[in-house]
Simulated scan of single mutants.
Amino acid sequence: MAGRSRLISLAAVLATLLGALGLTALWQGKAEAHGVAMMPGSRTYLCQVDALSGTGALNPTNPACRDALSKSGANALYNWFAVLDSNAGGRGAGYVPDGTLCSAGDRSPYDFSAYNAARADWPKTHLTSGAGIQLQYSNWAAHPGDFRVYVTKPSWSPTSALGWNDLQLVQTVSNPPQQGSPGANGGHYYWDLTLPSGRSGDALMFIQWVRSDSQENFFSCSDIVFDGGKGEVTGIGGSGNGTPTPTPTPTPTDPEHTGSCMAVYNVESSWNGGFQASVEVMNHGTEPRNGWAVQWKLGTGTQINSVWNGTLSTGSDGTVTVRNVDHNRVIAPDGSVTFGFTANSSGNNFPAGTIGCVTS
């Protein structure tokens, strides 16, 4: 993790220097898959649903989500689907330390450590013990593999750090079907799960997605409560953690997507009145991608003033599109390219909504 962090920092510094000189970088990297549980919603998924404001600012109402944003930063919350370890290879107990299961052992490209916090006020999904549910897991990038589903034992408390001995394996599913496009907020794998019987009160569902085509694994922690509920969510949108309302988990509006292409947005640095960001454009297809374009709507009060490794166009509604330049037109299978930009900002440094690939 330390080596990867140094590499990311070096790339950011290099991009800054090259951008200032009007030059371009030619690196390509390996694209990573992404995904966490959407039903029942993981901590990172529900916190980003709670936080999205439509202005480019992240303003969660849930106190646990607010603290996680403060401690782990906005990049982690905006990239809610990236709780991963590129080298896990299906390993769990003895490899991922107790107390760090919700952050992929602190080996993710982003800092998800705050989402390990042992507290009882995370957003919750209300379920019925012994009932059947359709479990949904984001296919932000689709890959073959197994999903290992665990539920905490009755002795576990939400105010205790989560360890492997707290978990009971309840299901393993291989290559379940998908619904919706990869790289979209609403796209997901889905399968049926019968919940443990004879349970009441708080619990946590932990899922480890083990890819069969690489060593990369994904980790997901969903806070649940067995109280006769049918999937209602509390603790987001100012709803508190009391009696659940019969409202399904909301799904943010998606931009258009183009299947195997996905874009990941990252604020590299910020200052009073502006920021620098990068966008990694990934090809999760099996064939080279010839040409790409990424589109999003800028946060309120934000204006891009320079771009490198891409060409910028701006629509009349404020939507921006960045397309490839000649040297990075082709993205290899399971590869990626990165473009960067600087912008003036009043503090809304993230897109007003989501970012995605569009037809180039």
Rank of each mutant, 00 (worst) to 15 (best):
S346D: 04
R289D: 00
R289S: 05
N283P: 01
A293E: 03
V233F: 06
V322R: 12
D334T: 13
A293W: 05
P252K: 09
D326C: 07
F339D: 11
T286D: 13
S269F: 07
G273I: 03
V281D: 04
P255T: 06
S239C: 04
T243K: 15
V279K: 12
T253W: 08
A293G: 15
T234W: 09
W296P: 00
N283W: 11
F341S: 13
G340C: 04
G340Q: 08
I224L: 09
K297R: 15
D334F: 07
G340S: 15
T251E: 03
T234D: 14
N272T: 13
G318T: 07
G237D: 01
T245V: 13
W296Y: 09
T258V: 13
S345N: 05
S313A: 14
W292L: 00
G273C: 03
A332G: 11
V264P: 01
G299C: 14
V294A: 08
G228Y: 12
V233N: 09
Q303A: 13
C221N: 02
G285Y: 09
V337N: 00
T247K: 15
N344T: 12
S313T: 13
N344P: 00
V322M: 11
P244C: 12
V279A: 10
A263P: 01
A293R: 12
V281E: 03
T311F: 01
T251L: 11
W296R: 08
G318S: 13
G229I: 10
E280R: 12
T314C: 01
G235E: 08
S239M: 07
K297T: 09
W292N: 08
H327T: 06
L312M: 15
G291N: 04
T234A: 14
G235M: 12
N241D: 09
V307T: 05
T251Q: 07
T258R: 09
G240L: 04
P244H: 13
N324L: 08
F219E: 01
R323C: 01
T311N: 15
V337S: 01
H284P: 05
P244L: 05
T249C: 01
G259P: 01
P288R: 08
G242T: 08
T258L: 14
G240Q: 06
T300C: 04
E280M: 13
G318A: 14
C221P: 00
P333W: 10
G259M: 06
E268M: 11
N241F: 11
I331G: 02
T234K: 12
G274V: 10
T342P: 00
Q295Y: 15
P246W: 02
C261R: 01
V294M: 02
Q295S: 15
T319M: 14
D334A: 04
D223V: 02
S346W: 05
R323H: 13
S306F: 05
P252M: 14
V225E: 03
E256Q: 07
S346Y: 02
W296T: 02
W292C: 00
D326M: 06
V307L: 08
G238C: 13
P255V: 06
G315F: 12
W308D: 07
N266T: 14
V322K: 12
N324W: 10
N309F: 00
W271N: 10
G231K: 14
S306C: 10
V337W: 08
F275R: 01
T243S: 15
V330P: 00
V279D: 06
E268C: 11
H327A: 04
S346Q: 11
V294C: 02
G301A: 05
